[in-house]
Structures are given as structure tokens and as C-alpha cells.
């Protein structure tokens, strides 16, 4: 009986396997202890009593899901801050590498200057949007239930994160174009490995950020649709 109840509770949390596992262990400990302390000679009756006192699994799962969504939102915010810092360090390291190896100047200076300007403004836009999103999230409380106000706040945060990601992607694309222009001006050598590797890490950072935001959006959509919450 307890196993069935745990199954009904955790199947609704399947979108967050780590949370589902932790909740299962914790709730099982509670239900077994409650049944043991019930003092009934009939184990089935004791289990039934423990389950009845625990409450509706759908309602409890919904409350856990809100905490999970809040955690994912915070992770997305933290990932955005970290990824931006990483991209900034990589950009500076690449420029330092070009200077140290006396890399030839970009072959098409007008195009290079235009791309550099887009790259720079896109990066600062991403930084401003991320900081705005982070401050916005930190100043909001997490409610016990997913209410309209919190949904609206999360939607605003997701919008800020999505805009920040779009700006970061534009900045990384600018970096890629600038790197190609640099490569076109130089003869192939082992020195190419460092800018290529740093660019690959930048692309990975942007991809990781997008995946974090998508995970948050997925959880949010599951919570909006209770049918999906059961089957996800």
C-alpha cells in the first residue's frame, strides 16, 4: 500500500529524477514510522491511516514541483552569470594570445570593426539582462503553491534569460566570425589550436546556458498542464 502511494507521488515528479528519488526515500521513512507508531495489530490498517494523514499525493507533488521549479530558475540564473564570466575570460585570453604570438591583423578591417562592435554590444547587453534577471529572481519569494503571481514572475525571468542567451549567442557568433577573419590573415600553424579551443568552450558555454533555460521552461510547462505532469 505504501509502495503504491509512493509510486503515485513520485510519478508526478518524474521531470526531476533527483527530487523524485529523495522524496521517495524521505516519505517512505515517514510513512513506515507513522505506521509503526500507529499501534494497530493490523499492518494494513496502520498503513492506511499513515497514508490518509499524509494527504493527497497530487497536491503534495505540486508543492514539491514549485520548489523544483524555483531551484531550476536559480540554476539558470547562476549558469547565466557563470557562462558570461567564462566567455569574457575566454575572449580576453584569446586577445592576449593574439598579442603574445604577434598574430597578423584582420584582413578585412571594416568588416572586422563592424563585427567587433556587434560582439561587444551583444556581450554587454547579455551581461545587463543577466544581472537584471538575477536581481529580479533574488528579490522574489517562492510561494507554497504555484500561483498566478509566481507564474508571471517566472515568465518575466525566463524572458530576461532568453534575451540574455540570444545576446550571448550573438556575441559568440561575433567571436567566431572574428576568429575566422584572424585565421584568414595568417598561415596555418599550431598557434591556431588555442583560439579554436577557446571558441569551442565559448560555444559549449552558450549551449549549456540554453539547455538550463530549456529545462526550466520544460518544468514550467509540465506544471501548467497537470496531465503532462503525470506522464512526463
Amino acid at each position: 500500500m505504501i509502495a503504491d502511494y509512493l509510486e503515485r507521488l513520485t510519478s508526478r515528479l518524474a521531470f526531476d529524477p533527483a527530487l523524485a528519488r529523495a522524496v521517495r526515500e524521505e516519505v517512505e521513512d515517514h510513512l513506515r514510522e507513522a505506521a509503526a507508531r500507529h499501534g494497530s495489530d493490523e499492518p494494513a490498517a496502520a498503513e492506511r491511516h499513515a497514508i490518509a494523514n499524509f494527504g493527497d499525493p497530487a497536491a503534495i507533488a505540486a508543492q514539491f514541483a514549485v520548489a523544483s521549479l524555483a531551484r531550476r530558475a536559480r540554476h539558470a540564473g547562476a549558469a547565466a552569470v557563470l557562462m558570461l564570466a567564462a566567455v569574457f575570460v575566454l575572449m580576453q585570453a584569446r586577445l592576449a594570445w593574439y598579442a603574445a604570438t604577434q598574430w597578423p591583423a584582420i584582413g578585412m578591417p571594416e568588416l572586422g570593426a563592424a563585427v567587433f562592435a556587434i560582439d561587444r554590444y551583444a556581450f554587454w547587453a547579455a551581461l545587463l539582462l543577466t544581472v537584471a534577471g538575477w536581481v529580479y529572481l533574488q528579490t522574489r519569494g517562492v510561494p507554497a503553491m504555484l500561483d498566478t503571481r509566481y507564474r508571471r514572475e517566472l515568465a518575466r525571468f525566463a524572458l530576461l534569460c532568453s534575451l540574455a542567451s540570444a545576446a550571448l549567442i550573438a556575441s559568440v557568433a561575433g567571436d567566431a566570425i572574428l576568429t575566422c577573419l584572424r585565421f584568414a590573415a595568417a598561415a596555418w600553424s599550431a598557434h591556431f589550436v588555442v583560439p579554436l579551443a577557446s571558441l569551442a568552450v565559448e560555444v559549449a558555454c552558450a549551449a549549456l546556458l540554453v539547455s538550463r533555460i530549456r529545462a526550466m521552461a520544460r518544468t514550467s510547462s509540465v506544471l501548467r498542464d497537470p496531465r503532462r505532469q503525470q506522464i512526463c
Binding site: V23, E26, G55, F64, A144
Partner: peptide, 12 residues
């Protein structure tokens, strides 16, 4: 209150 409602509060 339903006992189960305390656990999400603890997590939060």
C-alpha cells in the same frame, strides 16, 4: 494539517 504538506516546506 496534512502531514505531507510539511515536507515541501522543509525543502523550500
Amino acid at each position: 494539517l496534512p502531514e505531507g504538506t510539511v515536507y515541501p516546506v522543509l525543502h523550500r
